[in-house]
């Protein structure tokens, strides 16, 4: 690899985001790698940021944990200063700026950020340098192509919440069967106007 360290194993993840009729689901499996060693089977890659915004990550676990903590703190400060909650778009733009400000010593992460506000449900994907892309469905991590294969065959606009959750689970399951760097269970966060729900599933077949 041109004398450079191969970072692929650090991005081991099958993290998926899907918008549905009135919300967003973001899910990920739980395998954490250090090089080619599985250091944890119970890692967390999805995080609530506010009462209506969630993120899903792939990358170096310390980096995405820190990043989501920063984003939570910034969102809380925004809410106090503006006397209204931060919009999904604003949180995503802020995250993009945090990432871009570290372009030459980046947080080694890929991030999905989604949520619900007065303008509806939104999902964005970001790479480690802060590129910000609006999506209706998206994936990050080593299993991206495997996940997208399932999503592209099954996604349509205005899925119901249950359909979206099923699709996310199906995509992560499919990915974990063929991607050696992801597996060990599924965490899901689901945002609707009613708030955030959490779901945990095992991958036993």
């Amino acid at each position: 690899m041109n004398g450079q360290t191969d970072l692929t194993p650090f991005f081991g993840a099958a993290t998926v985001g899907i918008t549905f009729e009135n919300g967003v689901v973001i899910g990920a499996e739980k395998r954490v790698l250090w090089g080619y060693t599985v250091v944890s089977k119970t890692g967390k890659k999805v995080f609530p940021i506010t009462e209506n915004i969630i993120v899903g990550s792939a990358g170096v676990s310390g980096d995405y944990q820190m990043l989501s903590s920063f984003l939570t703190a910034e969102s809380n400060l925004f809410e106090l200063e503006n006397r209204r909650s931060i919009t999904v778009q604003a949180a995503a733009q802020l995250l993009s700026n945090i990432l871009f400000s570290r372009k030459y010593m980046p947080y080694l992460t890929q991030t999905l950020i989604g949520g619900v506000d007065q303008d509806g449900s939104h999902l964005y994907s970001l790479d480690l340098a802060g590129s910000l892309i609006k999506e209706t469905y998206a994936a990050v991590g080593t299993a991206t192509s495997l996940v997208l294969g399932v999503l592209e065959a099954n996604f349509r606009e205005n899925l119901s919440k249950e359909e979206a959750i099923d699709l996310a689970v199906k995509a992560i399951q499919a990915a974990t069967r063929r991607d050696a760097m992801s597996g060990d269970g599924i965490d899901l966060l689901i945002v609707t106007p009613g708030g955030i729900e959490t779901k945990h599933l095992s991958l036993a077949e």
């Binding site: 503006n82 919009t87 778009q89 604003a90 733009q93 802020l94 700026n97």
Partner: peptide, 15 residues
């Protein structure tokens, strides 16, 4: 505008 992609609230600017 750059940080949040949104125009500033009037009270926030005043503050």
């Amino acid at each position: 505008l750059i940080t949040y992609g949104e125009p500033i609230d009037v009270e926030v600017l005043t503050k």
